[in-house]
Design a protein around this nucleic acid. Sequence first.
DNA 1: CAGGATCGGTAACGAACGTTACCACTTAAG
DNA 2: CTTAAGTGGTAACGTTCGTTACCGATCCTG
Lengths: 208, 208
Amino acid sequence: MLAAKSGRPSGRREALLQAAAEVFFEQGYAATSIDAIIERAGGSKRNIYNEFGNKEGLFSAIVNQNADKALTALAIEEIEGRDLRETLTAFGQHLMAIYMSPTLIGVYRIAVTEANRFPDLVKSFYEQGPGRATSQLAEVLEGAKKRGEIRADDCQRVAGHFVGMIRDNLHLQVVLGLRPPPLDEEVKEAVASVVEIFLNGVRGRTDK
Amino acid sequence: MLAAKSGRPSGRREALLQAAAEVFFEQGYAATSIDAIIERAGGSKRNIYNEFGNKEGLFSAIVNQNADKALTALAIEEIEGRDLRETLTAFGQHLMAIYMSPTLIGVYRIAVTEANRFPDLVKSFYEQGPGRATSQLAEVLEGAKKRGEIRADDCQRVAGHFVGMIRDNLHLQVVLGLRPPPLDEEVKEAVASVVEIFLNGVRGRTDK
DNA sequence: CAGGATCGGTAACGAACGTTACCACTTAAG
DNA sequence: CTTAAGTGGTAACGTTCGTTACCGATCCTG
């Protein structure tokens, strides 16, 4: 049709990636047909095969691109606040926003689905995403521990607890399509609740 | 072949369900072929169509059966311990064991994958599984709150935090096939750490 | 023992899919 | 203006898959 001028192949490529991501994330790899992608992106199959070689090439391009997007959005070195509570709150909100973004919901779904078919893709997704976030938080906690602000045996483990609480059932519900992503208001409430419990939890031990 | 006597149709049915579950959970719905199931279960396609009608019927039977399994394994009314710490520890270990069982890992994968194709199945899976667990824990917490043992604004929300911490990154890693399920020793350590933080977190507020 | 009905296996059918051959059209060079 | 090159659309090919028609074997009934 006349959706895109034929003179801009890069625009074509982007449109294909966009449309393919939508369909892949919605339907899964096996259930997604090249025809369905073309129907959404316009143009013809020949376009896909010229640009990406085959179905698997297109899929890999999508996952890598979006994992990179999530990675660059995860620069928390800069959000270290005045005190630990502020840092945790900002980090939690940031994390929640990323986890709940349609893009990462889609990547998450596809990672779970195709874990067997594309183990390398899944590994790099985890390491660049949740794994990296946890490690970065663990470093922050390590610093707080040395300053005596918290008590913790294993900061890596405790950091995992924190990101687990952030994901909560909310993430699961959104991933399962049982509810829409939360609005800012709800995010703030949930993060505040998590930070409150977490801070009390790691600060002092009243017994034992 | 001679794997099952032809006189026991119920044995046949069970064998089919078992084999189909393995392939479905491993490959996903769309990528699983009837032939692949037969190859693993023995017999012939006719068997599947006589017993379950079609591919979708077989799939639904599997998910329902395994969701039921998880449901019946979730009777926590009986594991209320002497004090809150004991109850939470037992509940946490129970929950972790269920979440990490190969069966529920498979169901979880399929639920995430096929959320769009089978919304009703996914909904009942969530309500019978994570949703139910959270609600039951919320009731326990509500009791503790009335007895003054903990402080919490919204027990349902806080219960969500707890199950989130239990899932942790461990669950994600297992679901993604990045590591095997934890052994008993590791489960106990993780749950103890979670309970420690959670109890301190909801018990007293040292500031504010 | 005979007859009928039911179950299970084989093979085939029709549809859908990934991929590619082929051709029309546009574009740039001479 | 002619021609060579490359891009994009259409149609077709071979394969795979869900489903079913057909037929032999098995088991229950009289």
